[in-house]
Amino acid sequence: MQQQMVEKRNSIFDVVDLNLWYDDFHALKNINLEMNEKEVTAIIGPSGCGKSTFIKTMNLMIQMIPTVKMSGQINFEGSNIIEGKVDLVSLRKHVGMIFQKGNPFPQSIFDNIAYGPRIHGIKDKKKLNEIVESSLKDVALWDEVKDRLNSSAIGLSGGQQQRLCIARTLATKPEVILMDEPTSALDPISTLKIEELITELKSKYTIVIVTHNMQQAARISDKTAFFLNGEVIEYDQTDIIFSNPKDRRTEDYITGRFG
């Protein structure tokens, strides 16, 4: 029964033979991954294996680095984003990104959330109010900040800042949310809150999360990809990866024998 449900989901990202070089350094090698709508995919692997590099190709943030060369395909909703001229504005509106450390703008809480909608052309004050409120409610921050929407976002705690950044991304109504170690700078309680949030968000969004925390990957993800030295060693249902991995190196990594 469950198997059937998984198969009914539509593929949203389809990565085919992706290779990436920083100058001469071959950082991603023949990556093949397919991700389905409204699934949480965890990306695990030792430091330097290319997790951040990979996740940054999915919204082409990697192009900020001038030495990067890519080949292969990254098909987002059927069109290859690394070929031809892609509308970065529209891509990044649909594929949002959360960073390791919360990076709110030094502006008011309201302006932070309204930033995305505003640059995408929404000016109507009432509409903006609605978006801000619903985004903050979605990350369970509304009650904590509703009385100080006009004070600076820099005054929030680390965990609140990270949730604010998630709300800021939600405000542009993305389909996919990329998260690069979103809880690594947070205390255990804030981490737990973000994890709960991810489990709730997955009914509406496709989520890709890089994490160093095996328990986290096991707790919140549907599928897990294990990266090593720029290659995908294994990609499967999370419960299979953690209970019955096919590759010896995956097993070594998740049992803590290296990495």
């Binding site: 990044r92 960073f99 703008f105 030094p106 950044c165 991304t169």
Partner: peptide, 17 residues
């Protein structure tokens, strides 16, 4: 901090915005 630039670009803002 570079994180400000990244944060804005990742939301779909152009460089000038």
């Amino acid at each position: 901090p570079n994180s400000l630039r990244e944060g804005s670009l990742a939301l779909g803002a152009t460089r000038w915005q």
